[in-house]
């Protein structure tokens, strides 16, 4: 009985893809698409845009394969490209005024003894509220609080200094609290 064949490491697939192997590149896409989809889905507004941005990312990966240095895992290199693509997507989106339903906000920010907030509901509220943030602030708060990256990791992914990341995280949080509070207040005046 022969031993099962080990899956080739990413670095070998990269070399084969650079040499012209479409199968090698397809395998790389298959391995890393879920990670990319998970990152991008936190930034886009529709399924169509999600697919579009993810395709754009892997095309960039393909075009820059010869720049990949195996000093860091391939997944990390792809994540960096993905984060930059998400930042570009955020800058293309127009910031818009946010109206978050009063009852959702009050419930969401209420005493946890009232019960757990549904994940879908929480995501809906946050997505609406974050639409009012500047792109760089939204990028940082998403990576920090949804992707659960550290300040240092965010700094490496974005190329921004750690101080800048901290300032943007603080600013984003402050603005989010203001948006959620203001929108709850507006509805109560009616």
């Amino acid at each position: 009985m022969s031993a099962p064949e080990e899956a080739p490491p990413d670095e070998r697939l990269v070399r084969e893809a650079i040499s012209g192997s479409d199968e090698a590149f397809t395998e790389l896409v298959r391995r890393h698409k879920r990670k990319v989809f998970n990152i991008v889905a936190k930034f886009v507004r529709s399924g169509y845009e999600l697919d579009d941005v993810c395709q754009e990312i892997f095309v960039k990966v393909y075009q820059n394969l010869n720049k990949y240095r195996a000093d860091a895992p391939f997944e990390h290199w792809v994540s960096k490209i993905a984060v930059n693509a998400c930042y570009d997507a955020l800058r293309r989106q127009r910031r818009r005024e946010v109206e978050v339903p009063l009852e959702d906000v009050e419930y969401a920010l209420a005493d946890p003894a009232n019960g757990e907030i549904q994940g879908d509901e929480a995501w809906k509220i946050l997505r609406h509220a974050m639409a009012g943030l500047r792109p760089e602030d939204r990028l940082v708060i998403t990576l920090l609080n949804l992707e659960e990256k550290s300040i240092r990791e965010i700094s490496e992914l974005t190329g921004w200094g750690e101080s800048k990341v901290k300032v943007r995280a603080f600013r984003a949080r402050k603005e989010l609290k203001r948006i959620l509070e203001d929108n709850g207040g507006k509805r109560s005046e009616r």
């Binding site: 399924g47 969401a108 946890p112 994940g119 929480a122 995501w123 949804l146 949080r173 959620l180």
Partner: peptide, 21 residues
Amino acid sequence: DPKDEGLDRLFAAARKAGFYK
């Protein structure tokens, strides 16, 4: 700050949700 706690709860709940179909 209770607003900070509320925001943290929102983020924690959102993390459990799936972000795409």
